[in-house]
Design a binder for these strands. Sequence first.
RNA 1: GGUUGCGUGGCCGAGUGGCUAGGCACAGGUCUGCAAAACCUGCUACGGCGGUUCGAUUCCGUCCGCAACCUCCA
Length: 491
Amino acid sequence: MSELKVYNTLSREKEIFKPLNAPHVGMYVCGPTVYSDVHIGNCRTIVSFDVIFRYLQYLGYSVRYVRNITDVGHLENDADEGEDKIAKKAKLDNIEPMEVVQKYTNGFHEVVELLNTLKPSIEPTATGHMVEQIEYVQGIINSGYAYVSNGSVYFDVEKYSEKYNYGEISGRKIEDLKNNTRDLKGQGEKKCPLDFVIWKKAEPKHTMQWNSPWGKGFPGWHLECSVMSTKYLGEEFDIHGGGMDLKFPHHECELAQNTACSGHSHSVKYWLHSNMLTLNGEKMSKSTGQFFLPKQIFEGTTELLEKAYSPMVVRFAMMQCHYRSTMDLSNDALLAAEKGLTRLKNGLEAIDSSKEGEESFFDINGIEASFKSAMDDDFNTPVLVANLFDVVKQINLAIKEEKLISKNDREALKSLFDVYLTQIMGVELNTNAQSDSDSNLVEDDLIQLAVDVRNQAKNNKDWETSDLIRDKLTKLGIQLKDSKDGTQWSK
RNA sequence: GGUUGCGUGGCCGAGUGGCUAGGCACAGGUCUGCAAAACCUGCUACGGCGGUUCGAUUCCGUCCGCAACCUCCA
């Protein structure tokens, strides 16, 4: 059997996954800043790490999955100036900052639940860890890698880089960074433009501020992740995940903070990054209108798509692309995923109509090995999906050619689909479309009535009537499927 | 300009130093009163130019193009 390999951004190689304290695994993933609706790109990251979380659990690890909610400290720009995003939104909507936080936290949860992601083990917030953050800032000051300036505390990147390697995640060199840093206003408090704020002095009118040894203020954006990962996973832990765009500066700063505070230069063993989602080849961006909200996809209310696609279709579309590749979301991609998912579902349902016998046409062990080796290869879901389709082809072929399948193999096959498609990739197949919503029982009966009437007409060779019923039902979005065994319908 | 990465058939998307995924679309077929659906079959691609090699889409160089990051972003 194969071993799990993960691509580590630090080494830029696939490495064999060996947890620090097996069977325990600690995983920290950067969650959203809750100042506006999550967009579908955010969701991709959450879904990617959801699959990783699920697979690690499948392998038998006991995973503590920590995913934060950023509810303070994320500034509008990187000059470490400007407003806190949440405070700004609160002012704009004329509500409390915590109302902003609650509203978008709820929205975020709703969407990721629709996408069938598992809840993290711990979902800590920045405001809930103010004491720890203040202590952490003090810790960095004590170790000599931070300085106080005009009521704010800055991380001393130059001093840090004398001993440690600032930039090792993103491959940047401190000299290049210095040369390429643009002149920004408000850098006066910093010794060097590369320094970043870990505690920011609040203006008197600022709506979110806390007392600290350096005066009233609030924590810097990168700080919370260092603090909360350390608190819940320890000074050294296994996996840190997030979107590619967080490599620099966020993760670079986070790693520097960890190292400065604890002295351990390898606080994170494996850095994993998921890639961006694009729309027509461009990164989704609110400022250019190149984006839509997850709900707009599910409800079909964006002009950028031809119709609505269910959360499961969206999730399956994501599974057809590797998490480290950019994924282009388009109507065609979603349509292909929708049809592909139907094919998978049909194939799975068809298993039951295969002929049972002593011998078996299927090589269950081989199939299982192919599924597992796909996932072991840095969570290669597109290959796993391809393997699932291969099995579907085998099933269909077996039925057509009346090959035999043993009872055990039939159950094993179903179980493999359940494990890899549903439990690991989190794609639920609604295999019983005609009774998935009990609120429409009357409607279902009415449809069945129409189908029965049509069949009667068919039996009388009254094609005019039967075609009329079929056409009307089609217009209502109900599809009829005639076969030897009678007429099936689906919505 | 710097950093990281990418360029695969009509589209989406894996992967590999030789055996060359998969889905969608398309074409043909089976089934059907006709259709639809379903299923079967077919469709052999890796940006340009050099180099290494018995052999490169896969390694190296170079050129062109694209993206992300270097400004808030998952």
